[in-house]
Nucleic acid binder design. Structure first.
Length: 423
RNA sequence: GGAGAGAUGGCCGAGUGGUCGAAGGCGCUUGCCUGCUAAGCAAGUGUGGAGGUAACUCCACCGAGGGUUCGAAUCCCUCUCUCUCCGCCA
């Protein structure tokens, strides 16, 4: 949710923001017009209410004094004022509702450090880590590796649930679990609090975090109960403190959660159809920070490094890119994507997305903190995958494969897997 | 799933139609007092919105949303959540 007071004072910020995002700006004109009209009604209504309050006080006093004829006279007056209020207030509420529903569709303002660009082709790579392995044999894609090992079964996934669902057996199933546990152990030893969250959330919860109303197509819903399956643990973690006033001393709060994620993947027909890359259900370890506004962009650097650390410990080559203004997400002011090297793609594939949403979610969810000077401010929320587990599994399988189709278990996972090779 | 009780400020808790944004207590802040601490005394102590350079003024908020009324914390309806009992259950 954007700051309407800022919109009144400096509308140019928002025109600029939408232009940078390569989007049209009529919505800003509409909001400004509605806001102006709304305020004029608000003032009239407030003045009339003030008048009615005054009359009511006098009615009370006159009745107490036993002067009921005089009181009746004021009651008649008050009735007229009341009717007037009802009319104007109805109009005011309508304008307010229109204005807010539009405001919910305005994306966050990109940070000044975000490169300008029209779409994903203009994202900027900022660093690389590790060298992609040179194979002295023909490496297999993970779907062949897994199927040949008898541990990935795409047919059974389809049989049970349709396309983009997979069944895992044996060591691969265990690898998935080991990766999750490894990630949580690294993050918790790094200052994150592990949280176990609900996977079904209420409409208002997911609205506060920004997935609704705009992205309802992506969500699985349980209509009967008006509940939504989370597309990421970010929803639950970022909603933890809805309505709270935190102490400045508590910040930053750093949370991590391991959950499945459910996504309809509407509009991605034909994309990544083979293998585990794009599933309707996948597991992920998520990182979420509640930070102070003055250092939230430093926090984004830290959070991104925390996610990168997992890939470094696993010995998986990756690169980090900054999303340009045309590609950053709706709620984000700045986003880094981490992409891992996948032999089957002969390229880098997104495995984590780390964003600073600044006060965008905090405003929707009314998440504030009390500063030392006693002032109330909105917190800044940040989130990032640390990491997507399915894709990490894919990266390990493909990068650590052997000529005989077996897979070497990365050093750091051996304590969890209790074996050196999957075969 | 059935029956009942409840939700008031940072906390406890009064308040069932009228000068109630809300008694009282606790806590907190400031000042006084005091070898120190404690106690005592005094004042202050919510959030959001609109207007104003500002001092300040006005409006709203007693779980949420509607309704009745000239007027609602108080009456009515719906919802959410909490607690107790019964049933069921991993």
């Amino acid at each position: 949710m954007i700051d309407l007071k800022l919109l009144r004072k400096q509308p140019e910020i928002f025109y600029e923001s939408l232009k940078k995002r390569n989007q049209t700006t009529e919505i800003i004109d509409q909001i400004i017009a509605l806001d102006k009209e709304w305020r004029s009604y608000l003032n009239q209504v407030n003045n009339l209410k003030s008048k009615r309050n005054e009359l009511s006080k006098n009615v009370a006093r006159l009745k107490a004094e036993g002067k009921s004829e005089q009181a009746d006279e004021l009651i008649t007056q008050s009735k007229t004022v009341g009717d007037e209020i009802a009319d104007l207030e109805a109009k005011q509420n309508e304008l307010e509702a229109q204005m807010l529903s539009l405001a919910l569709y305005v994306p966050n303002t990109p940070h000044e450090s975000v490169p300008i660009g029209k779409d994903e082709t203009e994202n900027v790579e900022i660093r690389r880590w590790g060298e992609p392995r040179k194979f002295d044999f023909e490496p297999k894609p993970h779907w062949d590796l897994g199927t040949d090992l008898g541990m990935l079964d795409f047919d059974k996934g389809s049989k049970l649930s349709g396309s983009r669902f997979t069944v895992m057996f044996g060591q691969i199933a265990k690898l998935e679990r080991s990766i999750a546990q490894f990630m949580l152990d690294v993050h918790t030893s790094n200052g994150y609090t592990e949280v176990n969250v609900p996977h079904l959330v209420k409409r208002e919860t997911i609205t506060a975090t920004g997935q609704l109303p705009k992205f309802s197509e992506e969500l699985y819903t349980c209509e009967r109960d008006d509940l939504f399956l989370i597309p990421t643990a970010e929803v639950s973690l970022a909603a933890l403190h809805i309505g709270d006033v935190l102490d400045e001393d508590m910040l930053p709060l750093k949370y991590t959660a391991f959950t499945p994620c459910y996504r309809r993947e509407a509009g991605s027909y034909g994309k990544d159809v083979r293998g585990l890359i794009r599933q309707h259900q996948f597991e992920k370890v998520e990182l979420v920070w509640y930070a102070k506004p003055d250092n939230s962009f430093d926090a984004l650097e830290q959070l991104t490094h925390d996610a990168e650390k997992i890939l470094q410990l696993l010995g998986l080559p990756y690169r980090v890119i900054t999303l340009c203004t045309g590609d950053i997400g709706f709620a984000a002011a700045k986003t880094y994507d981490i992409e891992v090297w996948l032999p089957s793609y002969n390229g880098y594939k997104e495995i984590s997305s780390c964003s600073n949403d600044t006060d965008f979610q905090a405003r929707r969810g009314n998440i504030r903190y009390r500063a030392k000077d006693g002032k109330m401010n909105y917190v800044h929320t940040l989130n990032g995958s640390g990491l997507a587990i399915g894709r990490t599994l894919v990266a390990i399988m493909e990068n650590y494969q052997n000529p005989d189709g077996s897979i070497t278990v990365p050093e750091v996972l051996r304590p969890y897997m209790k074996t050196e090779v999957i075969k």
